[in-house]
Design a protein around this nucleic acid. Structure first.
Lengths: 201, 201
DNA sequence: TTTAGGTGTGAGCGGTGCTAACATTAGCGG
DNA sequence: CCGCTAATGTTAGCACCGCTCACACCTAAA
């Protein structure tokens, strides 16, 4: 006579699964979760999740997308309070590496999830990339940056940042036990080193 | 009455498994192989592989180690014919990125296989890293390189190379469809850009 | 109120990594 | 050459996985 039996419909399964998966991936990596376990945790049968995500890959892609949004948000926050474009760019580099250090598995997933093919999955979005190139043009017009190909300069900056982040994630010997504060300093130093080469003050 | 029945012992199972796994990972990525399939291909029962590799992870680690050796060999070949240390370093950068472009899944595995913990799994080995730092000292003594922390300079170079390689592997929009010849040029250009910043000619 | 469709269930298929108990064989000390 | 041990293979099987199918249920629009 128990009248408080669970409702037949969960009500918010999709979101619950996504949320749980996100937390699991963030804390233990993508290997650490299974559809079935997710279903169990949500108090639902093992077949239910497939009503919302046709595929495990699809769920992972959704998680990756959420992580990407999180990265985006972080970068926005980091650059919001910067006056000039140059310090904006530096702050972005720092925030990027810091995010990688604090959420290594998410950072990893972002780049390995081949969700939207033809798009570099996890890095700067197009808007940001354009902004960067615009900054370089600006600098060249002001005579601050030598007349090298702006795309090349942008690419080089991006590569440096990305490489730094990955080295942190992958456990480079000199970077593995880095606090995120140390990561901050390193990112800043390396970026300035590169920029001094390019010609920025 | 078939007198030519298979010998009970394979004779070379460990090597055969390793070889097959290596090829599979190289051509289709680490998801594409299972212990059981490997056993089938070797004409052996599904439990046999575990006599040689206690764990799937262990096998993958062995594959990663082989890949790492391959990378090492490639880098050695690339730098063998270079006269001075500077062009050696540049050739190494180019070869590194090229390897990543030609063997993306191996490159990936090398870095994700947490085999020997505490060691940056897939990058330059210690010997090479020391050589790089020595080169920087040399340059500083000759007055060619400013007196920044040599470790920082080395780290920055390494990050740039590593980042470039990863962007190629992960499918960066401007880098995805890069031929390995284009990768060569890019690596060279970016490296020179950085080095001109540091002070190398 | 009916009905269509979105969301849940249970059973089950073929696959996986891995283990345990047993079989065969190679190789070494006598 | 014999016999023993350890290495290497076998079969059977456990627990789990992703995923599918047929069916049950509930909701909301007509």
């Amino acid at each position: 006579m128990s009248s408080d039996h669970q409702p037949y419909h969960h009500g918010n399964l999709r979101e619950a699964l996504l949320e749980a998966a996100f937390r699991l991936v963030d804390s233990q990596g993508p290997e650490a979760f299974s559809m079935r376990a997710l279903a169990r945790d949500a108090g639902v049968s093992s077949a239910a999740p497939f009503r919302h995500f046709s595929d495990k890959r699809v769920l992972l892609d959704a998680v990756a997308e959420r992580a990407r949004a999180e990265l985006d948000r972080t970068l926005d926050e980091a650059t919001a309070q910067c006056a000039d474009a140059l310090t904006q760019f530096r702050a972005m580099t720092v925030a990027y590496v810091r995010f990688a250090a604090e959420h290594p598995t998410l950072f990893d997933l972002i780049h390995s999830a081949g969700s939207t093919p033809g798009r570099f999955p996890g890095d700067l979005n197009d808007e940001r990339r354009l902004k960067l190139i615009a900054l370089i043009y600006e600098g060249q017009n002001a005579g601050l940056i030598p007349e090298a190909d702006p795309e090349l300069i942008a690419l080089t900056s991006e590569a440096l940042t990305h490489g730094l982040a990955r080295m942190v994630v992958d456990g480079h010997p000199r970077l593995a036990s880095l606090s995120s504060e140390d990561a901050r300093k390193l990112a800043l130093a390396a970026t300035q080193l590169l920029q001094s080469g390019i010609g920025l003050s």
